Simulated scan of single mutants.
Amino acid sequence: MGELCVHSVLVTGANRGLGLGFVQHFLRMPKPPQWIFATCRDPKGQRAQELKDLASKHPNLVIIALELANPASIKAAAAKVGEHLGGSGLNLLINNAGLVKPKTLDSETLEDMTETYTTNTAGPLLMGQAFLPLLKKAAQGSPGSGLSCSKAAIINISSIGGSIASSFGWDMMQVTSYRCSKAALNMLSKCQSLAYREHGVLCVALHPGWVQTDLGGATGYAPPVTVDDSVQGMLKVLSSLSEKETGTFLDWEGNVIPW
């Protein structure tokens, strides 16, 4: 199993947490991608400062404004990425941006459920639709048959909280809207894998572990996994994926998680 080797990658929610971790790891690779597209809601804001500092030192890092709740914003981002790539396609789309509302089942509201689903489930759906032409182009331009992340792939960052078979963390955090949205994201990943396979695009749902991020710590408990370890593990998993894994639900160490 070699190191992941991609010409271009896009990461959503890249201004902090796992998204920023992905960007940092891609930049540190012996053969970094020629294009790293990092999206966030407000590229000019204070919360994107670390990302801006990296972009000032790395010409292959392009920051793009993206609001997942806004279909027009997603289409505009896809058009911008297409302009940068010229005739080549996008190898890897990492749908990482996520939202959690730390509520109990009794205190969930329609507004919370709708907002969480919009970001965690509808966002990755619309991203897949908007970027499919670029992913198809990458798949067509890659040598050899079969599926891989070096060719063309959609990676949906999910959560064990979306596993219906597991009640992991229920005593600590009910976060019902988050769990429901991630269970739906898992089904979306399966649907994408079935629909996009013929285009040469691999699709998986990936649980990053319980990670030390703002989202991971939203419950008031200290998560055990560092961003660095999680991202390193996930990139190792991505480098080994083939068509037999498309449509599966895996964790950051490559273990299969029950639906």
Rank of each mutant, 00 (worst) to 15 (best):
V256A: 15
C203Q: 05
A79R: 09
L68D: 04
G161H: 05
A14G: 10
P133W: 09
I155D: 02
I64W: 07
N96K: 12
T121D: 09
E115N: 14
G169E: 10
Y117V: 15
L147G: 06
Q192G: 10
R179M: 05
I94G: 07
I154K: 00
L135G: 04
R41A: 11
Y178D: 03
A72V: 12
N156Q: 08
L185F: 07
G98S: 08
K136G: 12
R16Y: 07
R28A: 13
E83A: 15
S148H: 03
Y196S: 05
N156V: 06
G128T: 04
G87A: 08
P102Y: 09
S193Y: 06
A78E: 01
A139V: 14
K52F: 09
L134V: 08
C5F: 11
W210Q: 02
L132G: 03
W259A: 02
L185A: 08
I164R: 07
S242D: 13
E111S: 14
T226D: 12
L135N: 04
V256N: 12
P208W: 04
M173T: 10
M29W: 01
F131P: 01
N186Y: 07
I94F: 09
C5Q: 15
N186K: 07
A65S: 14
H58W: 13
H58V: 05
G21A: 11
T226F: 03
V11Q: 00
Q174A: 12
A195E: 15
G82H: 13
